[in-house]
Simulated assay, not measured.
Amino acid sequence: MAKSVFYSFHYEQDVHRVQLIRNINALAGQPLLNPQEWEQVRRRGSQAIKEWIHDEMAYKKAVIVLIGRYTATRPWVIYEIEKAWADKRPMLGIRIHGLSSLGSVDIAGSDPFARSEGVGSIPIFDPTTRDWSGKIDSKATYKRLCDNLENWSSQGVSKRSW
């Protein structure tokens, strides 16, 4: 059985890229909410969102932050990072801007771990592959991600107990 992980990401911007990652089937992640389901949770307020995060993260072995262009600016991503750190869950980041979303790639986003309160140094892996002209090759990026996702997922770090 695949390792069970919690994926943290910016829904509106990166849901198509995240679906590509889920299709790799190397890891078992939480179910992706469709826009209507997310809106139902969101309408119930901050506490409902926190409860959804807690429930989905509860039995996961690790947290993988899928880093797109705007991920570091999303308050719920920062909340998920801080919760995972407090819970001492292994965590890592993977850059996904080089994957195709409806036919286009994006630019790299900033490090969301650096914006999170009290979180230590977290490894960030970048499968982005460029062609001979320097342009992002989304197919080669996806292949590199497929080839490395399972290995990278075992390299997360967690908060230490002192």
Rank of each mutant, 00 (worst) to 15 (best):
R43W: 05
Q47T: 08
N23T: 08
G29F: 08
E51T: 05
S46W: 12
L33Q: 03
I21V: 15
Q30D: 13
P31F: 12
R42W: 07
E56K: 03
S46Y: 12
A58I: 04
I49W: 03
R22S: 10
R43K: 14
P31I: 06
V41K: 02
I49R: 08
S46R: 13
D55S: 11
W38Y: 11
A62T: 14
A28N: 12
I53C: 06
Q19W: 10
A48V: 00
N34C: 13
I21N: 00
S46H: 13
G29K: 03
N23D: 15
Q47S: 11
V63D: 00
N34V: 11
W38T: 01
L20F: 07
K50N: 04
I53F: 08
E37R: 11
Q40G: 09
E51H: 07
E39V: 07
K50F: 04
Y59S: 15
N34P: 04
M57Q: 05
R43H: 09
Q47I: 06
K60D: 01
A48G: 01
W38S: 02
Q36T: 14
E39M: 10
Q47A: 10
W38R: 13
V41G: 00
Q47D: 12
G45F: 08
G29R: 04
I53E: 03
M57Y: 01
N23A: 13
Q30N: 15
G29A: 15
E39L: 12
Q30I: 12
Y59W: 12
N25G: 10
E51S: 04
N34L: 07
K61D: 15
K50A: 06
P35R: 07
W52S: 01
E37P: 01
E39P: 02
I21K: 02
I21M: 03
Q40W: 07
V63L: 10
N23F: 07
I49A: 01
K60G: 01
H54I: 05
A62F: 09
W38F: 09
Q36H: 14
R42H: 11
L33M: 14
G29M: 09
K60P: 00
Q19G: 10
R43S: 13
L20D: 05
G45P: 04
W52Y: 09
N34M: 08
D55K: 11
Q30S: 13
L32W: 03
V63W: 01
V18P: 03
K61I: 13
S46D: 12
N34D: 15
L20G: 03
W52D: 00
Q19R: 15
L33A: 08
I49F: 02
Q19I: 13
A26R: 08
V63K: 00
A28E: 14
G45C: 09
G29W: 04
K50P: 01
R44C: 02
N34G: 10
N34R: 10
V63S: 01
A58V: 05
V41I: 15
L33W: 05
A28T: 06
L32N: 05
W52R: 02
E39A: 15
E37H: 06
M57E: 02
Y59K: 13
L32G: 03
R43T: 09
K61Q: 15
K50H: 09
Q40A: 13
